[in-house]
Amino acid sequence: MALSLAVSPCPNDTFVFHALVHGLIPAAPEVNLTFADVDVTNTAAERGEFDLVKVSYAALPWLMDDYELLPTGGALGRGCGPLVLARDGKLDLTGKTVAVPGDRTTAYLLFRLWAAKTPPARIEVVPFHQIMPGVADGTYDAGLVIHEARFTYQRYDLVSLADLGEWWEGDTGLPIPLGAILARKGVVDPTEATEWIRTSVSMAWANPAASRDFILANAQEMEPDVVDQHIQLYVNEFTLELGRDGLAAADALLGRAAAAGLTPPIKPFV
């Protein structure tokens, strides 16, 4: 029976899951792929809609009763954090409107921890591709962006007010836990799924050209050089294996969030 898989169309996900999705791993089952932004998968997973799913680490407190965290395939790293963008580099966010890509995203959770002493008056959840244009045209005072926006925000004449990755790493010494891969309990064997995905990652690294057409076809009009930068930044050693630092990063993020009353408490991974 085919397994349902939901990931984003971003280059890091299409790079990582190309071999698995295209039936190139002999031991793996057929996979039915759905592309969706992480804000969609965060809530879809809560409804149990997918067998394997990419979600934000910030959404885990609502999902761990039904899913198990896999130690491979996700997005963690250093130097890859969300940015707070505005037209004015000296903008004070107090009383301003900030566009965010989802209310259960890691980016927004980091923003809430960072901005705890000066919360903006209004948060608007906006599709990711609308954030930078909306800030540029004055619809929003500031915007919280992720992924390829690190490489393209200057095109909108925007400036970075804060790099939440730098803030997080400076405060904790840990990588940022952005996206997690979950397996639905009772449906997917987590050990087997880990091996499928780890093999898919290894095959992607061994033969990057094999996934190129698939990546570019789903890269939402990203230029090839931006695609390459995206993959190099977000597919790293933590993608292959979370390891102790990766799990510690998840514990630090969710522990701080629970202590601040932002998320329900969750059992530590380490």
Rank of each mutant, 00 (worst) to 15 (best):
I131S: 14
R112Q: 03
G89S: 08
V125M: 10
K117Y: 10
A121Q: 09
Y108C: 01
G102V: 00
A75Q: 11
S56H: 07
N42I: 07
E124Y: 15
T72E: 11
K96T: 11
G79E: 09
P120K: 01
A44K: 06
M132E: 11
A36E: 07
T34G: 01
A107E: 05
A116C: 07
R87I: 12
Q130E: 15
L63M: 08
V100R: 05
V100S: 12
P119C: 05
M64A: 12
T118C: 06
Y108H: 03
P127H: 06
M132H: 15
D37R: 12
R112G: 02
H129Y: 10
E68M: 12
F128P: 14
A45N: 04
P82A: 04
A86T: 10
P119M: 09
D51Q: 04
L83A: 10
L63R: 15
K96L: 04
R112T: 02
G95L: 05
E124H: 15
P71H: 15
D92W: 14
R87K: 08
V98Y: 13
A86H: 12
L110D: 15
G74P: 15
V40F: 10
L70Y: 11
A121P: 07
T106M: 08
L110A: 11
V126F: 01
A59P: 11
L83P: 06
G81V: 07
T105M: 02
Y57W: 03
W114P: 02
D103T: 04
M132G: 09
T97S: 06
L113V: 01
W62S: 12
P82L: 02
G89F: 06
D37Y: 02
P120S: 03
L93M: 14
A99C: 09
A99Y: 12
A116I: 10
I131W: 10
L60I: 06
L93F: 13
V125F: 03
G74Q: 05
